[in-house]
Amino acid sequence: MALHFLPTAHPSSLPSSSLSLATQTYVYHPISGSMKRQSTLCKAVNQPAIHPPILTKRGLSISFLTTFVFSFAGEGANAAILEADDDEELLEKVKRDRKKRLERQTVIKSSTKETGYLQDLVYKLSEVGKAIENNDLPTAASVFGNGTDADWVQKANIALNKLSASPEEKTEVDTFNSSIASLISSVAKNDVESSKLAFVSSASAFEKWTSLTGLIVQLKGL
């Protein structure tokens, strides 16, 4: 008959990765009449395993959406700043343009004599155009009189130079002067085709100049 005693445990001798119990059992053997010790090592407790976080499709979607929203918000803020700068720059440009127009209107209103010169130019060009259209170059030549030295041509040139402010306006004045000189020369040579081309060039340059200066609404016959 074997008798079993309470086991003794030695946990300090076990590795840290798990908690094991070393048990000792004493067994009596009636035949030999002695007690024999029997040791058994039992693993009692295991440390819980550490599992990595589980990533689900829903979690990934939420993370991506959050990143996208903050990124979009940042870009939106930057765009708003740029738009505000653009608006301010545009507003300043509008103010400058308006100031220039007011100044130009003031100069034009005070230049009644020069405006009269230009109105006479419109009438004279109209007469020349009708004569050239009818192939009547002698009549066109009579309108020019002394050519580029004609009084109305000289006065028109004075008005054009005085009322021109921007580089574009001055360019059109130069084009007009060159074209009117060519027109006078073609008429004097009785060259109908060249006269027609030079007249169109002169009239176009003058009309564009009046559009740039705003005088197109004040001059009659354009």
Rank of each mutant, 00 (worst) to 15 (best):
Q105E: 15
T106W: 12
V107S: 06
I108Y: 04
I108N: 07
K109S: 14
K109P: 08
S110A: 15
S110Q: 15
S110G: 13
S111G: 11
S111T: 13
S111F: 06
T112N: 14
K113D: 14
E114A: 13
E114L: 10
E114G: 03
E114C: 06
T115M: 05
G116L: 11
Y117E: 00
L118R: 09
L118F: 06
Q119K: 06
Q119H: 11
D120L: 12
L121W: 04
L121T: 08
L121R: 07
V122G: 00
Y123E: 13
Y123F: 15
K124W: 01
S126M: 06
S126Y: 00
K130Q: 08
A131H: 02
I132T: 03
I132V: 15
E133I: 02
E133S: 09
N135A: 11
T139H: 03
A140H: 15
A140G: 13
A141C: 11
S142Y: 05
S142T: 08
V143Y: 04
V143S: 01
V143E: 08
T148Y: 05
T148P: 10
T148E: 15
D151G: 04
V153I: 14
K155G: 11
K155S: 08
A156L: 11
N157E: 12
N157C: 13
L160P: 06
N161P: 07
L163C: 00
S164H: 08
A165R: 15
S166T: 15
S166Y: 03
S166G: 07
S166C: 06
P167N: 05
E168A: 15
E169V: 11
K170W: 08
T171E: 06
T171Q: 13
E172Y: 10
D174R: 12
T175W: 08
F176E: 00
F176Y: 05
N177S: 01
S178A: 13
S179M: 03
S182P: 00
S182F: 02
S182L: 10
S182R: 08
L183K: 00
L183C: 04
S185F: 09
S186M: 06
V187Y: 03
V187K: 03
K189F: 06
K189H: 07
N190T: 03
N190I: 14
V192I: 01
V192A: 13
V192Y: 09
E193I: 09
E193G: 01
S194Q: 06
S194K: 11
S194D: 13
S195P: 11
L197Y: 07
L197D: 08
A198G: 14
F199H: 01
S201E: 07
S201H: 07
S202R: 05
S202Q: 00
A203D: 01
E207T: 07
K208H: 09
W209Y: 10
W209P: 06
W209D: 01
T210M: 11
